[in-house]
Amino acid sequence: MRMRTVEIGVGAFMLAGILALVVLALNVSGLNPAEQTGGYKVYARFDNIGGLTPRAKVAMSGVQIGQVKAIRIDKDMLMAEVEMEIFNDVDYLTVDSSASILTAGLLGEQYIGVVPGAEEDLLGEGDFIQDTQSALVLEELIGKFLFNKVSE
């Protein structure tokens, strides 16, 4: 009799644990088993990356098409170099696409917004996006504003 209670209890306990793990995987961390198709690396250089961090999203028209993998300094060009991993099923980025560092919401996280261009050729593994727009830095904006104001 008592053994039965124990076995049922332990079984329910294990089940609860497994369910909780599944919830954590899917609902909390957004692990999408379908999405993990792997990706190809695309690079871009920026004057100022602002508050961009690794794992920030790379989006086109607001829809995520990849992720920022790493941020480095390019010693030759003395600019910031961002390494992005674009999902394999994204096959519409032309070589003249542009990448800008945008902010989600007023004080939200920064992400890279990509706008495809009009060329025929597509970006491949290891290619660089040439047309980039750095992040808006608040101090520079204020400085520009004041400068304009003064010259009026």
Partner: peptide
């Protein structure tokens, strides 16, 4: 937002 920032391998 939660799903965006919680990575299964790094966090969970």
């Amino acid at each position: 937002n939660m799903q965006q920032s919680v990575d299964f391998y790094d966090d969970v």
